[in-house]
Amino acid sequence: MRPPADAIGTLALIVGVIASLIFIGVEAALVYAIWRYRASRNLAGQPATFERNRRLEIAWTAAPALILAAVFVLTLGTMAEINGAGVAPAMRIAATGHQWWWEFGYGGTKTANELHVPVNTPIDLDLTSVDVIHSFWVPELGPKMDMLPGTTNHLRVLARRAGSYEGQCAEFCGVEHAWMRIRVVAQSQAEFDSWLAAQAVPAVTQGGDGERVFFLSNICVNCHTVRGTAAAGTAGPDLTHVASRATIGAGVLPNDVARMRAWLADPQRYKPGSLMPRVPLSDADLDALAAYLGALK
């Protein structure tokens, strides 16, 4: 199967060429009319008086109609192709929109904001939302598809190049819509398999200071899950392997221990309006917490 992005690219090229030709033709006719019939050049001549020409009118209605009919046929073909054209997906991944982050589910294994896929493999995303409407869009992968609460939509993706792809939510979903970015990582089947296996492993209880702060007063754990521990909140991203991700807060910050500490000190500073509140913590607690999360590889 051809990647949907390629199929759309071909169609866009055809439509673009047709549109450019029409554009050039019309603008040229317009410029010609202005230049040829301007009063200063046409002083002596009386204006013509023709005001209709049935044949001409039929012709210039039929011509665009024929062009559009052809474009429509191509449209139908490409629509079928980007939906998978009868090729069954090699795997399905659940993608769920949250105000302003993404949840990805591989069976029972959940992760956030970073979608890993095996390269050159047709995959269907099952898209839904828990709150408002979002839209999954990674331009290099082709089409976007809305994520609606209460409904599941499907999007075929096929990444041909190994590496990372950037995208972001395309349906206005509230105050932090601009920082709801997606990272897609396409890797070889072997790399993908080991990544998935690593994600599936629950965290081990470390018993350090950071972990103590994490469970303190039931604040963080109310919203976040760390599999393997008692933390099972679902309002925020799964943090079991948070340190394995490249960014924090769906793209607002690169992920390292220093930035993690800054985020924890005041998420509202980097993502004002985000649903992660600022939790007042001492400097020592912040250090410990950042170190704890930084160890969740």
């Binding site: 949907p4 992005a5 199929a7 759309i8 169609l11 866009a12 439509v15 673009g16 549109a19 029409i22 554009f23 559009l68 474009v71 191509l74 449209t75 490409t78 629509m79 980007i82 839209s135 869009w137 331009p139 082709g142 089409p143 976007k144 598809m145 395309a170 349906e171 206005f172």
Partner: peptide, 19 residues
């Protein structure tokens, strides 16, 4: 008008709508 027609082409629309 021409960009409008391109948006009527569903696959192109899916690529660029809401952008």
């Amino acid at each position: 008008g021409l960009s409008g027609v391109s948006l009527a082409v569903v696959p192109i629309d899916l690529a660029v709508t809401d952008s």
